[in-house]
């Protein structure tokens, strides 16, 4: 029982970590206040779930869901290319709501508010990843690869250009780089990775509905990115562990469930606020948001 719970917790932690790392790419590294991230996650989840429900193998479905989420990133990036700071936050937020409304209302396709049930556990190259431990290994492999890819990216010339977009856009444009292209690229890659996380989520919990993809679900992820430090991948990982431990340990205080939910949220909020006051760049970050 305890073991199963721990496995579940670790897998959810892995999925959240992938999502937070992919948000790090737009928000931390490129400095775009992206509140539309949950939409990419949702698109990934639904695509993967629908495709496998219609008989497509998991590996293909996951690939397509990353592709579609990346496409959504392209769309969002192109539409918001000239919008900055506050207005970008508002526009990306609008995008989140838009996708949520689409999921809620295309009944024939997404089954509306009832959601999709009986999503199959994945089969990868003929190997059934049904057991929770197998799923955990699979998630960990993906999380580690995402981490390594992003780590490489940060040090690559492209990563440098992305960070320069955040730090001094004008200077970069003077040097003849197209910051618009860089921003769109960040949105696309970030979308792809979030799509992968979404696909994992759908096949892990085997039931998804639009309520799992609202802005309220994005806020903890934003907390992770800010607490850990913008642009710091290690920070995000530490923050994920710390926050999950805090929120899960509250479960053992044997409080009524109507209290724990709001209390956890309040702790998140207070932590976020404290960090913003005391150390706006987060635990490990070097930059604060402009």
């Amino acid at each position: 029982m305890t073991f199963a719970y721990l496995l579940h917790l670790a897998t959810m932690l892995g999925i959240n970590m992938i999502l937070a790392l992919s948000l790090q790419l737009t928000m931390g590294i490129t400095g775009l206040v992206n509140l539309g991230h949950i939409a990419f996650f949702a698109i990934g989840s639904y695509t993967s779930a629908l495709l496998t429900l219609h008989g497509m193998p998991f590996t293909g479905a996951m690939f397509v869901s990353a592709l579609l989420a990346g496409l959504a990133g392209l769309l969002l990036g192109v539409f918001t290319q000239r919008i900055k700071a506050d207005y970008l936050a508002l526009a990306t937020l609008a995008f989140s709501y838009l996708v949520h409304a689409l999921l809620l209302n295309t009944h024939s396709f997404t089954n509306g508010p009832l959601g999709l049930a009986n999503i199959t556990k994945p089969i990868i190259f003929g190997f059934q990843v049904g057991a929770n431990w197998a799923f955990l290994i699979f998630t960990t492999v993906i999380a580690v690869s995402v981490y390594l890819i992003l780590m490489r990216l940060i040090d690559s010339p492209l990563g440098m250009a992305l960070q320069a977009t955040r730090d001094n856009e004008l200077a970069l444009r003077v040097l003849g780089k197209s910051t618009l292209k860089l921003k769109i690229l960040a949105f696309v890659c970030s979308g792809c990775l979030a799509g992968v996380a979404g696909s994992l989520y759908a096949h892990f919990v085997t039931f998804i509905d639009p309520a799992s993809f609202t802005i309220m679900q994005l806020i903890p992820i934003v907390c992770l990115v800010v607490l850990g430090g913008l642009g710091s991948l290690n920070g995000t990982i530490v923050a994920t562990f710390v926050l999950i431990l805090i929120s899960e340990s509250l479960r053992f205080l044997s409080l009524p469930s109507s209290l724990t939910g709001p209390l956890t949220q309040m702790i998140y909020a207070s932590l976020l606020f404290l960090v913003l006051i005391k150390k706006p760049q987060g635990f490990f970050g070097k930059v604060s948001l402009k």
Binding site: V33, D86, I219, V226, M266, A269, S270, L272, L276, L289
Partner: peptide, 10 residues
């Protein structure tokens, strides 16, 4: 804005 989000949750 982030502070405001924290306040909203709170």
């Amino acid at each position: 804005l982030l502070g405001s989000i924290a306040l909203m949750i709170f």
